[in-house]
Simulated assay, not measured.
Amino acid sequence: MKVIGFTQPGSPDVLTAFDLPAPEPAAGEVLIRVHAAAVNPTDTVKRAGEHADGVSVPGMDAAGILEAIGPGTETDLVMGDAVMAIVVPNGAHGAYSEKIALPAESVVRAPRGIGHVEAASVPMNALTARLALDTLALAPGQTVAVTGAAGAMGGYAVQLAKADGLRVVADAADKDKELVTQLGADTVLPRGADFAERVREEFPDGVDGLIDGAVQEDEITGAVRDGGAVISVRGYDAAGERGVEFRPISVPSYAREHAKLDALRQQVEDGQLSPRVAEEFPAEQAAEAHRRLEGGGVRGRLVLTF
């Protein structure tokens, strides 16, 4: 099978096509013929800094067709189903592959009415947003702020927070204000270093929690009430002022949360979540997709097709 990976870390140009043996699903696993794999910031970090032992393959989102079921695997999926999955990359095991074997818990049917490319934009980013909200554990009626709200994870966080009954205040550049409003944010404020001050103008006591999709870290703690919490998606774990707590999250901890991934599938079908694809690239153009993502300003996900 063809994979897109690298043997030495570096610029996007290190990404190249390799021919590797196709995997066989073991007990508890299923095999997916991948048709689409999303490109995420975690992929670019891996490519730029991971020293590989052999071929390293990025990619945390896969969508395609279920091709085989491992011996003794318990699943309601059947061969031929259109599916989507979250992948925890490890060495040559990554979503930028024509075929991938995964734990059955990491795979669900793709939402009805969308294609492989759209489905590939959902699992990792939506599960990250779900984990962020579960970690905050706010009650309906409380207020959550979201930075990076026009991005893929941030947009899902806005939509899921509204579905949870929360009040949402989000940031946006002028060009993205309409998008973020359509996603459901109750209050949209200009993005930037003064976001915390602008939040306090609207919410003098501060918001109950904040999901830091823009990775502003200490810069945005002022937006949160005394004793509130900030969700860090990049491992930031400093002691906050006024009892504000940073809570780092890592989506691999939800990689086998089958019920949560399937609930996201249902929310897409119900119109509560909107898959967003910025652009498609043939898998062989993965380097260009990485350059595009690292250039900034991408709204939605870039997706590789196989």
Results as ranks from 00 to 15, higher is better:
residue 232 S to Y: 02
residue 119 A to W: 09
residue 173 A to R: 10
residue 302 L to Q: 05
residue 49 G to Q: 13
residue 259 A to E: 12
residue 37 A to I: 04
residue 163 A to K: 09
residue 299 R to W: 07
residue 112 R to K: 15
residue 106 S to Y: 06
residue 94 G to W: 02
residue 28 G to K: 05
residue 272 Q to M: 13
residue 246 F to K: 10
residue 254 Y to M: 14
residue 17 A to F: 11
residue 104 A to M: 04
residue 30 V to N: 04
residue 131 L to Q: 14
residue 229 A to L: 02
residue 209 G to H: 05
residue 86 I to Q: 01
residue 79 M to H: 13
residue 157 A to C: 06
residue 138 L to S: 05
residue 18 F to T: 08
residue 150 A to Y: 00
residue 293 L to K: 04
residue 164 D to R: 15
residue 173 A to H: 14
residue 106 S to G: 10
residue 142 Q to V: 05
residue 231 I to T: 07
residue 280 E to C: 08
residue 288 E to K: 14
residue 216 Q to V: 00
residue 175 K to Q: 14
residue 32 I to E: 08
residue 123 P to S: 00
residue 217 E to W: 06
residue 252 P to E: 07
residue 41 P to D: 03
residue 187 T to K: 12
residue 240 G to I: 02
residue 74 E to W: 02
residue 73 T to Y: 06
residue 284 E to I: 11
residue 137 A to D: 03
residue 13 D to E: 15
residue 235 G to T: 01
residue 143 T to E: 00
residue 151 G to P: 06
residue 110 A to G: 04
residue 71 P to D: 08
residue 248 P to Y: 03
residue 253 S to L: 15
residue 162 K to P: 01
residue 288 E to T: 14
residue 9 P to F: 07
residue 293 L to R: 11
residue 1 M to N: 13
residue 64 G to M: 11
residue 73 T to F: 05
residue 104 A to T: 06
residue 194 D to S: 13
residue 122 V to D: 03
residue 53 D to L: 13
residue 213 G to P: 04
residue 147 T to N: 04
residue 135 T to Q: 05
residue 305 T to C: 02
residue 256 R to C: 03
residue 93 H to Q: 15
residue 290 H to A: 03
residue 231 I to L: 03
residue 168 V to T: 00
residue 248 P to Q: 03
residue 121 S to D: 02
residue 275 P to N: 07
residue 212 D to C: 02
residue 46 K to D: 14
residue 2 K to R: 15
residue 219 E to A: 13
residue 28 G to W: 09
residue 257 E to G: 05
residue 88 V to R: 08
residue 152 A to E: 10
residue 28 G to M: 09
residue 287 A to C: 02
residue 258 H to N: 14
residue 222 G to K: 01
residue 81 D to A: 14
residue 162 K to H: 02
residue 300 G to A: 03
residue 19 D to C: 14
residue 185 A to T: 10
residue 145 A to W: 07
residue 174 D to M: 11
residue 156 Y to L: 09
residue 84 M to D: 01
residue 61 D to R: 06
residue 264 L to N: 00
residue 240 G to Q: 04
residue 65 I to N: 09
residue 200 R to Y: 04
residue 199 V to R: 06
residue 100 I to M: 05
residue 168 V to H: 09
residue 97 S to P: 01
residue 117 V to P: 07
residue 276 R to A: 07
residue 83 V to L: 11
residue 192 G to L: 12
residue 279 E to F: 09
residue 286 A to F: 01
residue 221 T to Y: 05
residue 222 G to V: 03
residue 136 L to F: 01
residue 190 P to T: 11
residue 49 G to T: 07
residue 66 L to R: 03
residue 108 V to P: 00
residue 79 M to G: 14
residue 218 D to Y: 01
residue 273 L to E: 02
residue 83 V to I: 12
residue 142 Q to A: 12
residue 186 D to F: 11
residue 80 G to T: 06
residue 187 T to E: 15
residue 102 L to T: 06
residue 108 V to H: 00
residue 210 L to E: 05
residue 299 R to Q: 07
residue 176 D to N: 13
residue 119 A to R: 08
residue 1 M to K: 11
residue 136 L to W: 08
residue 296 G to N: 09
residue 297 G to H: 11
residue 179 L to S: 08
residue 98 E to T: 12
residue 26 A to S: 13
